[in-house]
């Protein structure tokens, strides 16, 4: 465990909690892509099946359970409790265009052709593109609320910190996982345009981000 991974994990946790609290406090999920949240729930479910097969550390187990729990809680709030506020008309990204190719790729490019390993690979590939429905929704409506942009910022920061973590681990532990690294680079790149807007618009005092 190095400082980059720890802050990466905490940044990821912050993003998840920010979104959950935003929906809970405002009693509304307007502007949030339910599809992205379902994809993240799927990502955590398929990645953390190893909770049942191996124990790594108390930290590891606790965080996995929190991530999975929060992901399903978010999906529940969007599709059940605050369903009336869900902006389904603008959440029109075709998720099958992500899930099907990603599933195929996980079958073709993996470390080991075993069910758990393929599901883990699937989750890594899917995570890298799971935010696309949310970014698509923002580009469609033309704006995002401040809290939503904070959510996206921490979510992007998390993977960027993981990239530094992987460089660190390569130099100091000789550790590298090509699948995680390539998917992590793709994931971080998807947030770059958003990061730029977040910083520039944030300084201008505007509370909305307009990608157009």
């Amino acid at each position: 465990m190095n400082i980059f991974r720890l802050t990466g994990d905490l940044s990821h946790l912050a993003a998840i909690i920010i979104l959950l609290l935003k929906i809970w406090k405002t009693r509304s999920c307007a502007g949030i892509s339910g599809k992205s949240q379902v994809l993240f729930a799927l990502v955590f479910t398929t990645r953390y099946l190893d909770l049942l097969t191996s124990f790594i550390s108390l930290y590891n187990t606790t965080m996995k359970i929190i991530y999975i729990g929060c992901a399903y809680a978010t999906v529940y709030l969007i599709y059940m409790k605050f369903k009336a506020t869900y902006d389904g008309n603008h959440d029109t990204f075709r998720v099958e265009f992500l899930v099907v190719p990603v599933g195929g790729l996980a079958f073709l490019v993996n470390h080991d052709f075993s069910p758990l390993e393929i599901l883990w690979t699937f989750s890594i590939y899917l995570e890298s593109v799971a935010i696309l429905p949310q970014l698509f929704m923002i580009s469609k409506t033309g704006e995002a609320e401040t809290i939503t942009t904070h959510y996206l910022f921490f979510l992007g920061l998390y993977r960027a910190l993981y990239l530094i973590n992987w460089i660190w681990r390569f130099y100091f532990e000789g550790f590298f996982d090509m699948i995680a690294i390539v998917a992590g680079v793709v994931q971080t790149i998807l947030y770059c345009d958003f990061f730029y807007l977040y910083v520039t618009k944030g300084e201008s005092g505007s509370n909305k981000i307009n990608p157009a």
């Binding site: 991974r5 994990d9 990821h12 190893d50 191996s54 790594i56 550390s57 590891n60 965080m63 996995k64 991530y67 470390h111 080991d112 075993s114 390993e117 883990w120 993981y162 973590n165 550790f175 996982d177 090509m178 995680a180």
Partner: peptide, 10 residues
């Protein structure tokens, strides 16, 4: 490299 890595990351 065709080997399963240790999944100690989240």
């Amino acid at each position: 490299c065709h080997r399963t890595t240790v999944k100690d990351e989240l």
